[in-house]
Nucleic acid binder design. Structure first.
Length: 320
DNA sequence: GCCAGTCAAGTCCCG
DNA sequence: CGGGACTTGACTGGC
């Protein structure tokens, strides 16, 4: 028996005017004559994003959703070099505290997926420093939300830079220069272009990093098609985490556009996967990466309720 | 009120 | 070696 919990990403298609990713571009910022007023505007946007995050958490709790990925665009221009003097955390304190209080009353697994410009295997020190800075922002947000920072940021391995083997070794080299408090936030995901499950496992086992298996990515980028022989290794990378294993699920948009994410999750594909891993872990958390966000979660849950051998505990939790 | 175009980042691909 | 595509949601400007 395995408990499965479903989660979704960043925003809800059911809540109106509830974007947690409102923004201001640097061009817009530069166009404003009063720099102080422009910074106040950035702060208003960031606070509005956090207020919307709280609305999303309330929506989640009301719908028995216990697993959620925050947007990584909560603070516009937070790491822009022209704004290095901006102390952006101070004005967010109260709204972060509200999230912290809410999460205490309604326990939920929350995490982040910083965008693909966070690169830990780059040789460029500016890019590496910017990446660390961006991760430090995520760390500060988690601290403000009073969430234990361990294993809360999913990253891809990074660029291939013409030589995948060297790029993997560069990751290991750079890892030694990354502050420990940031190392412990990281999980690594197999990607759809360069670093396969086998590549990612190599790093995760060597560095003690939990591996987030993305089934859809594996279907378009693998070294050995049969992932099941590696499954126990994936499970083992979670041995030192306090959190249950997590993975990503999405369905191909079409045969022609196989890499792109579909609006919804194909329940057959998902069940086929679950049937291969059931019993291997007591609990698994599955992050739904679909265009229709929480609606994809609800539809998947509805479809699975009609299948045999699945025992639903609540809207987003079932036993298989 | 809708549609096309713009924005931001680093890598990768094409010419 | 330079410029455009990639990706994503938000936002702007034109009609």
């Amino acid at each position: 028996m395995t408990i499965v919990k479903l989660g979704y990403v960043a925003m809800s298609v059911h809540l109106q005017n509830c974007s947690p990713s409102q923004t201001m571009t640097f061009r817009q910022f530069s166009g404003l004559k009063d720099r102080e007023a422009a910074i106040r505007k950035l702060e208003r946007i960031a606070n509005s994003n956090l207020e919307n995050c709280l609305r999303l958490l309330i929506h989640n709790a009301a719908n028995d959703i216990h697993f959620f990925r925050f947007s990584s665009k909560l603070i516009p221009l937070a790491n822009h070099e022209e704004l290095s003097d901006w102390k952006y955390m101070r004005p967010l304190k109260e709204n972060l505290k509200k999230i912290a209080e809410y999460l205490k009353e309604h326990p939920m697994r929350v995490d982040f997926h910083p965008d693909h410009f966070v690169l830990l295997n780059t040789k460029d020190t500016d890019t590496l420093n910017m990446s660390i800075k961006t991760l430090a922002m995520h760390e500060a947000l988690l601290k403000g939300m009073e969430v234990d920072q361990e294993h809360r940021c999913v990253l891809h391995v990074g660029g291939a830079y013409d030589d995948k083997e060297k790029a993997l070794e560069q990751f290991i080299h750079n890892w030694g220069h990354i502050p420990n408090s940031i190392q412990r936030m990281i999980m690594l995901e197999n990607d759809d272009k360069t670093f396969s499950l086998d590549d990612t496992l190599y790093l995760c086992e060597k560095l003690g990093i939990p591996l987030v298996f993305d089934y859809h990515h594996h279907l378009v980028n693998y070294q050995y098609e049969d992932w099941t022989t590696n499954w126990e290794r994936v499970v083992s990378t979670w041995h030192y985490s306090k959190l249950p294993i997590k993975m990503h699920i999405s369905s191909p948009k079409s045969e022609k556009d196989f890499r792109a994410h579909a609006d919804y999750i194909d329940p057959d594909m998902f069940l086929e996967f679950l049937n291969k891993i059931k019993g291997s872990v007591p609990e698994i958390h599955c992050m739904i990466e679909a265009k229709k966000k929480d609606d994809a979660l609800f539809m998947l849950s509805k479809a699975l309720k009609e299948r045999e051998g699945i025992n639903f505990i609540d809207q987003s939790t079932f036993e298989i």
